Simulated scan of single mutants.
Amino acid sequence: MQKNSKRNSHPVEKESNTDKKKESKEDFVEVLPPEVTFQIFSKLDIQSLCKAAMTCKRWNQAIEKSDYLWKHHCLTVRAICQKEIDGDRGNGYSWRVTLLRNYWKSKVKHEWLSGRYSNVSSPISLPEKNMCPMDADTWGEILEAELER
């Protein structure tokens, strides 16, 4: 009597596992038309879009080459940092680069203008990781808002 090894006893399973591996290597960016891929990525918020761009080369290329994906988010940031966004766009920066240059500034500026830091008693009370450099005009806007409170 001859014993069959477990490795050779299920050749059909081995083939199906190989097929599954082939299928799992394809993703929607490869399979779907670029317009559909764009629609999927356009549903992501800024942080998710940045994370998706870091997922793999194909996703990065699809996201990076579609500057329009960044436009909506950039216009949202523009509501807070109009001067900065308009300046960067006027200097020829893409929507993506403009957004990346101004995103954190807009977050910090929004928090200041909304009064989050109005009653700060010392610099130690400020969250260091959320702070970013801002120009004199931006600080002037923040000071005006504080004086009006």
Score class of each variant (00 low, 15 high):
residue 77 V to F: 01
residue 14 K to T: 05
residue 58 R to A: 10
residue 39 Q to N: 09
residue 48 S to Y: 06
residue 26 E to Y: 06
residue 97 V to R: 13
residue 89 R to A: 00
residue 39 Q to P: 04
residue 18 T to Y: 13
residue 38 F to T: 06
residue 27 D to Y: 05
residue 93 Y to V: 00
residue 42 S to F: 06
residue 63 I to F: 05
residue 96 R to G: 02
residue 50 C to R: 10
residue 57 K to G: 07
residue 22 K to Y: 15
residue 49 L to D: 03
residue 53 A to N: 13
residue 10 H to R: 15
residue 52 A to M: 01
residue 34 P to E: 11
residue 72 H to T: 13
residue 82 Q to T: 12
residue 45 D to H: 03
residue 77 V to K: 07
residue 50 C to N: 09
residue 35 E to W: 04
residue 92 G to K: 08
residue 66 S to W: 11
residue 35 E to Q: 07
residue 80 I to S: 03
residue 14 K to E: 15
residue 65 K to Y: 08
residue 15 E to F: 15
residue 92 G to L: 10
residue 52 A to H: 02
residue 92 G to T: 08
residue 49 L to T: 02
residue 81 C to Y: 04
residue 94 S to G: 03
residue 11 P to K: 03
residue 86 D to W: 01
residue 38 F to Y: 11
residue 28 F to T: 03
residue 47 Q to M: 15
residue 45 D to V: 03
residue 45 D to I: 06
residue 31 V to H: 10
residue 34 P to R: 06
residue 63 I to P: 00
residue 68 Y to S: 10
residue 96 R to W: 04
residue 37 T to E: 07
residue 39 Q to H: 12
residue 73 H to E: 06
residue 66 S to F: 13
residue 78 R to E: 05
residue 55 T to W: 14
residue 11 P to N: 08
residue 17 N to D: 15
residue 32 L to S: 09
residue 13 E to C: 08
residue 74 C to M: 14
residue 55 T to H: 15
residue 23 E to W: 13
residue 31 V to A: 05
residue 37 T to M: 07
residue 58 R to M: 09
residue 27 D to I: 00
residue 32 L to F: 10
residue 46 I to R: 09
residue 72 H to C: 09
residue 36 V to N: 13
residue 81 C to N: 10
residue 64 E to Y: 11
residue 88 D to P: 05
residue 76 T to Q: 06
residue 46 I to T: 08
residue 49 L to S: 02
residue 34 P to S: 00
residue 34 P to A: 03
residue 19 D to C: 10
residue 61 Q to W: 14
residue 22 K to V: 12
residue 12 V to E: 14
residue 72 H to A: 13
residue 73 H to W: 07
residue 56 C to E: 08
residue 36 V to S: 09
residue 70 W to F: 05
residue 55 T to A: 13
residue 85 I to E: 09
residue 85 I to H: 09
residue 12 V to R: 14
residue 65 K to W: 07
residue 53 A to Q: 15
residue 12 V to T: 15
residue 60 N to A: 07
residue 67 D to K: 09
residue 75 L to D: 14
residue 76 T to V: 11
residue 63 I to N: 00
residue 81 C to G: 08
residue 38 F to E: 00
residue 22 K to F: 13
residue 51 K to V: 00
residue 67 D to C: 01
residue 31 V to L: 12
residue 80 I to M: 07
residue 46 I to W: 15
residue 97 V to K: 14
residue 51 K to I: 02
residue 40 I to N: 04
residue 81 C to F: 10
residue 33 P to T: 04
residue 21 K to W: 13
residue 89 R to F: 14
residue 34 P to H: 00
